[in-house]
Write a protein that binds this DNA or RNA. Structure first.
Lengths: 216, 216
DNA sequence: ATGTTAACTAGAATATGGTTCTAGTAAAAG
DNA sequence: CTTTTACTAGAACCATATTCTAGTTAACAT
């Protein structure tokens, strides 16, 4: 096929430096507005003012207000995922790894409070296209995570469970806690709960039965 | 104070039957539209058509599109809460109660799929007033729940934990699982996971230590 | 350097759709 | 039977998301 002999023609043609900067500044401004007034509450004008750019510019780069919201969301998720994988790869052994997931979730959310809060808003009104992108991002992430944990399950350190059960069991509680904390339901910092949830996560997925007792 | 001697003047003056019906039909129509096209994707016109009523009527009863969304949300939460409390009160003992929470969450979500899905959309752009109402509803609910479980903790059957830890530990996993299931991430019905998560919940909050081993 | 192309910016014009307003109708209250 | 008030209707209004046309700037080939 001649297509493959074309010298990387279809790749994007290297965005200008100004473009990168503008996109970033828009996303930053948008996050700011969104956290302040909610997604619906912020107008294109708000973002425009905060990012100091024209309507035309916004639409050129993102196509729509929704486009901005989607981009912000996907970028945020990607950043979170990258961070999680980095942290995971620094961990040794099953227990440390499982706990690392919980701890990272907590730490990251506290460090990136606004973004974390935004990521908790649901993707109800995302476009089909954005949904697809998100799915891709998630798939490649979850694949890496499972690759990491696979050996522990195979080796019998962790319970063998239906694959869909692991994420809820490990991250469910901390996620729910952080969500409530972010939306201001209560004050106690997640940091104080971190180890509690980390332990619980490990108890939920560690191997039980003949291998040994579950307690001290 | 003379105010208190006024004969219950401030109560609502008994809504007409037609009013109740209309409100209900609007909420039903709205839920329908929202699940089909998302909240933002739904126009007042859509709801109007689906509920067969005029704009004026909508605004008379709910004040705004957001008002409709809020009402639907609060009503949904209330129904869920009532159901949960009913189920809880049919349970005997700590273990059965804890597991009942998980099971009910799962059952209810499957039975009321559209509403459950709607309730998972976050309350980002709710009015201050709605937020307050929601808080009231939640508070009275959580109070009853804690009243129910209090004795088990006091009696040593359940672990003593920071109060904010219980909900995430017990409901976090099933909630996360159901959320993913509702948004179509995967097929396996929550029913197949119900007992797994019920067990995990119980393990997370049951008493450990000297009282007995954590396993078989 | 200079011309050519395409990425990018700008803001006025447009269109969509949420909200308000005025004028009613029907049901309860006295 | 009158009065009051909850309720309905839909046209007018208005905020704001999006589109359009006209430029401007940067990269790049000659």
């Amino acid at each position: 096929m001649p297509r493959s002999s074309q010298p990387a023609r279809r790749d994007r043609p290297e965005p200008r430096a100004a473009t990168v900067a503008r996109r970033a500044s828009v996303l930053k401004a948008a996050l700011d507005c969104f956290t302040r007034h909610g997604i619906d509450g912020t107008t294109i004008g708000d973002i425009q003012k905060a990012a100091r750019c024209s309507v035309g510019s916004l639409y050129h780069h993102f196509g729509s207000k929704e486009g901005i919201a989607e981009e912000l969301f996907i970028e945020g998720i990607s950043r979170f995922n990258r961070g999680m994988l980095r942290r995971l790869r620094q961990s040794r052994g099953a227990e440390e790894s499982v706990k690392a997931v919980v701890r990272f979730y907590c730490d990251w959310s506290m460090r990136n409070r606004a973004l974390a809060s935004y990521l908790h808003s649901r993707d109800i009104d995302f476009s089909e296209q954005a949904r697809a992108r998100l799915k891709t991002v998630y798939r490649s992430y979850i694949t890496e995570v499972f690759t990491w944990f696979g050996p522990f399950v195979a080796g019998g350190t962790m319970r063998a469970l239906p694959p869909e059960a692991y994420v809820p069991l490990i991250s469910g509680p901390i996620q729910e806690y952080v969500r409530r904390w972010l939306s201001g339901h209560y004050e106690p910092s997640p940091a104080r709960m971190k180890e509690l949830f980390a332990d619980a996560a490990w108890q939920a997925v560690r191997s039980r039965g003949p291998a040994g007792p579950a307690v001290h």
